[in-house]
């Protein structure tokens, strides 16, 4: 599988956020999107995930096993908010996402175990700390097999230890033939990661 982006541009409210983005990632490749706040990192991910239509250019998946060219059909999206319900327990939240998606991979217990959180599985999500909530949201990526991970500030709220664990998960996913695109202002320690750097936008 290959993710190709050509001449991509995006607008928000009339302002051109970025244009002329071009890159290609093959299976087993990861890319960090870096840059200052407001440079367009999140917008790029939302365009890739199909939430925003591109103003120009295209982004698509080629050589996919099942033929669908939409990135969204092959991708997990981890946004800045966690997509978990405070009123449900961690297990109920993860069980739901696991059943709702295709290609189940890990059980919620195992996925949480990878993040060192197996002791909170029956706790209501609302009782967790900020960092724990983020780790549960990351655990969702492990529940269903999807080749592409689109991660928007994945490590926000994580301590150094959890960041290292997370970098390990990203490394495992890439080693297994996955593709990862992470927008972050911190560096994620994954070997061989490519970089796409957004510069400060020139004042209009």
């Amino acid at each position: 599988m290959r993710l190709e982006v050509e001449g991509l541009a995006a607008r928000r409210g009339g302002d051109m956020i970025f244009e002329g983005i071009r890159f290609a990632l093959g299976a087993g490749e990861a890319m960090a999107v870096t840059g200052p706040n407001g440079a367009g990192k999140s917008t790029l991910l939302r365009v890739l995930a199909g939430f925003l239509p591109p103003a120009a250019g295209w982004a698509r998946v080629t050589n996919a096993a099942d033929g669908a060219g939409d990135i969204a059909a092959h991708a997990h999206f981890l946004g800045p908010v966690n997509a978990m319900k405070p009123a449900l327990t961690v297990r109920e939240n993860l069980d739901f996402w696991r059943i709702f998606g295709d290609a189940p991979l890990l059980e919620p217990e195992e996925a949480l175990g990878r993040l060192g959180l197996d002791h909170v599985i029956d706790v209501p999500y609302s009782d967790l700390s900020t960092g724990q909530r983020r780790r549960v949201a990351i655990a969702r990526l492990l529940l269903n097999r999807r080749t592409i991970w689109l991660l928007d500030e994945p490590t926000s709220g994580l301590d150094a230890n959890a960041e290292a664990v997370f970098a390990g998960l990203v490394g495992d996913h890439v080693a297994g033939g996955g593709i990862v695109i992470a927008a972050t202002h911190l560096s994620i320690a994954v070997a061989g990661m490519k970089r796409l750097r957004f510069a400060e936008r020139a004042p209009a």
Partner: peptide, 16 residues
């Protein structure tokens, strides 16, 4: 929409 779950639901449209 507020907690981000809608994004994931919309993205799953190729499965459901």
């Amino acid at each position: 929409h507020e907690d981000g779950a809608l994004d994931v639901l919309v993205m799953s449209r190729f499965e459901t």
